[in-house]
């Protein structure tokens, strides 16, 4: 069990507020690691810090053995970190297929090749086929040619997951993938994430306790910018500090 991501002493403030206030966290290769915590605990901020959209004020991020604390998002994606957003980020006026095809295309980093400026993208069948495969994987095989803005909220969330997967990340960051979903849609998403277990390392931010305890190999609890407990679901569920700080107000 080697840590794919090692965070230590990570800090980030907004004005006088320390949204991330000394976070230590390890994500181990192959695990689904859930990050839970009350509203405003700093979960999304931590995801931003890992993805590179925010840079830390203090502390370090090690990914696969190298320090990525100051790397750009672009660089971090190239190293294998991809994220989804709490608020869906897709291309609304493009088909689902083109949404995912762009994600597949992002892996091609041949910027010197003039072909990418001249050859029609539609001639690249391998990319299109791969995009279709990812869409089937998340249950959207029948919707490939619909515009992203025309499908349901749950389908858009699944689309975003397909896009993130299509970059073939070593670490997938999911920020509340079930946000705003009905029970059926949530269940579908939970099954999708469960289907990733074992083959994909995931850091999952989620509110729904049932889902978290079902999916996660390990759970970390973030409160006021700090990880207060980290461990197996059973350990975390029974931990008194968690019960008072977090589950207490969820129950």
């Amino acid at each position: 069990m080697t840590a794919l991501l090692e965070i230590s002493g990570l800090k980030r403030h907004f004005g006088g507020l320390w949204a991330t206030n000394g976070v230590d966290l390890d994500v181990v290769t192959g695990e689904v690691h859930a990050l839970i915590g009350p509203n405003g605990a700093g979960k999304t901020t931590l995801i931003h810090l890992i993805s590179g959209e925010l840079l830390p004020d203090a502390g370090t991020l090690q990914f696969a053995g190298s320090d990525i604390s100051q790397c750009t998002t672009h660089d971090r994606v190239a190293r294998g970190i991809t994220r989804s957003y709490q608020i869906t980020q897709i291309f609304p006026r493009l088909s689902l297929l083109e949404n995912v095809r762009l994600a597949v295309q992002s892996r091609q980093r041949d910027w010197g090749s003039s072909l990418r400026f001249w050859r029609p993208a539609s001639a690249d069948f391998r990319m299109i086929e791969e995009a279709e495969d990812w869409l089937s994987r998340v249950g959207l095989a029948a919707e490939v040619s619909q515009l992203a803005c025309d499908v349901s909220h749950g389908e858009r969330r699944a689309l975003e997951l397909a896009m993130a997967l299509a970059t073939r990340p070593r670490l997938l960051l999911l920020d509340e993938p079930m946000a705003g979903m009905g029970p059926e849609e949530s269940e579908h998403m939970a099954r999708l994430i469960a289907s990733l277990k074992g083959e994909q390392t995931v850091l999952l931010v989620e509110h729904d306790m049932d889902i978290v305890f079902r999916l996660a190999d390990r759970v970390s609890v973030l409160v006021s910018g700090r990880i207060i407990v980290s461990g197996t679901p059973d350990f975390v569920r029974e931990h008194p500090a968690v019960r008072s700080a977090y589950l207490g107000d969820a129950l």
């Binding site: 672009h74 980020q89 897709i90 493009l94």
Partner: peptide, 11 residues
């Protein structure tokens, strides 16, 4: 259409 997403895809 979505610069944030493009950035997050590593473009």
């Amino acid at each position: 259409q979505n610069e944030t997403r493009m950035e997050a895809l590593g473009y």
